[in-house]
C-alpha cells in the first residue's frame, strides 16, 4: 500500500454483487420459509372451505368461551404486570437499596424458566396435592384448573415485559427531574403522575403491548394449570391444540388465525406508535 493514495476501506456497500445477491436471497428464503409461509398457511387452511365454516368454527360455544377466557386472563394479567413493572422499574432505576441486583435477576427469571416448569410450580403449590391444597379444598377455592390458575400462570410468564422495557429507560432518565419536583414541594404521587409518568408513557405502552401479545399467546404454563376443560378452562392456544388433535383443521386454523390477527394488530399498534413518535426508542424486551 502506498502512502500517496488513500487506503480504501472495506464497506458493506462495496462487497461484490454476488455476495449481496446470495445474502439477500438467503434472508428472503429464510423469512419466507419460517415466517411468511406459516402465516399464509394458517389463513389458507382456515379459509379452505370458505369464510362461512371458519366463522362457524369461531362461533361454537367452546371457541367463544376460549376467546372470552383468553381475553379475561389477559385483561387481568396485563394491568397487574403493568403496575408491578412500573413499581419495580421505579424502585430499581431511581433508588439504591440492598438486594437490588437480586431483584433484577428475579424479574428475569420467567424468561429463563421453561413455561411448563412455571405451570408445574403453581400445580405443586395450589394443586389438590400441593402445599395449600387441603386449605383451598376446605374453603372451596379453586385455583388450579380454573381462571385464577390461568391468570397466575399468565402473570408469571409475562412478568418481565413491562419492567424490562422501563428499567433502562428510567435509568437513562435519572432521578433529577423527580428530585427537582420534590425540592419544589411536590409529594410522591404528584411527582409520579406529573413528572415520571409523562416521561415513561411510550415505553410503558410498548411494554404493555408486548406483555399483552405474550399473555394471549401463552401455551405451556397455561396448559399445565388449565386442565383442558372444554368450554371452561380452555384458552385460545389450548383450544387450537384440541381442535387440531381432533382433526378439525378448519376450526383449529380459524382460531389460530384469530390469534395471529391479534398478534398482527399488536405489531401494527407498535409500528404506528413508532411512526408517531420517531424520537422514542423502543427496545425489544429480550
Amino acid at each position: 500500500m502506498s502512502t500517496q493514495t488513500p487506503v480504501r476501506g472495506h464497506y458493506a456497500s462495496e462487497d461484490p454483487l454476488w455476495v449481496k445477491v446470495v445474502v439477500v436471497t438467503l434472508v428472503a428464503l429464510f423469512l419466507t420459509l419460517l415466517l411468511i409461509l406459516p402465516l399464509v398457511t394458517v389463513f389458507s387452511e382456515a379459509l379452505k372451505r370458505g369464510v362461512g365454516p371458519a366463522l362457524e368454527a369461531l362461533g361454537t360455544y367452546d371457541a367463544v368461551s376460549a376467546i372470552k377466557l383468553t381475553l379475561t386472563a389477559a385483561a387481568i394479567a396485563v394491568p397487574l404486570n403493568a403496575v408491578f413493572g412500573v413499581c419495580a422499574a421505579w424502585a430499581i432505576a431511581k433508588h439504591e437499596f440492598p438486594g437490588k441486583s437480586i431483584l433484577i435477576s428475579l424479574i428475569d427469571l420467567p424468561f429463563s424458566v421453561s413455561p411448563v416448569v412455571a405451570g408445574l410450580i403453581y400445580v405443586l403449590v395450589f394443586g389438590a396435592q400441593g402445599w395449600f391444597g387441603e386449605f383451598l379444598l376446605e374453603h372451596d377455592w379453586r385455583i388450579i384448573f380454573a381462571l385464577p390458575g390461568i391468570v397466575l400462570a399468565t402473570i408469571f410468564v409475562t412478568f418481565p415485559f413491562v419492567a424490562r422495557e422501563l428499567i433502562p429507560l428510567m435509568q437513562a432518565q435519572g432521578a433529577a427531574e423527580e428530585e427537582a419536583a420534590v425540592s419544589m414541594g411536590a409529594g410522591g404521587l404528584t411527582t409520579f403522575w406529573r413528572v415520571t409518568a409523562p416521561n415513561i408513557r411510550l415505553g410503558l405502552l410498548y411494554g404493555v403491548l408486548l406483555c399483552n401479545a405474550r399473555a394471549m399467546g401463552e401455551f405451556g404454563a397455561v396448559s399445565v394449570v388449565s386442565g383442558h376443560i372444554r368450554g371452561l378452562t380452555d384458552t385460545m392456544p389450548l383450544h387450537v391444540e384440541i381442535l387440531y388433535n381432533e382433526y378439525d383443521f378448519v376450526g383449529a386454523f380459524a382460531v389460530a388465525g384469530l390469534l395471529c390477527l391479534l398478534a398482527l394488530l399488536t405489531l401494527v399498534a407498535k409500528t404506528v406508535l413508532e411512526m408517531l413518535h420517531p424520537g422514542v426508542k423502543t427496545r425489544s424486551a429480550h
Partner: peptide, 9 residues
C-alpha cells in the same frame, strides 16, 4: 435547587 443538567420537565 438548580440541577447540573437543569432537570427541566
Amino acid at each position: 435547587f438548580v440541577f447540573q443538567q437543569y432537570a427541566l420537565f
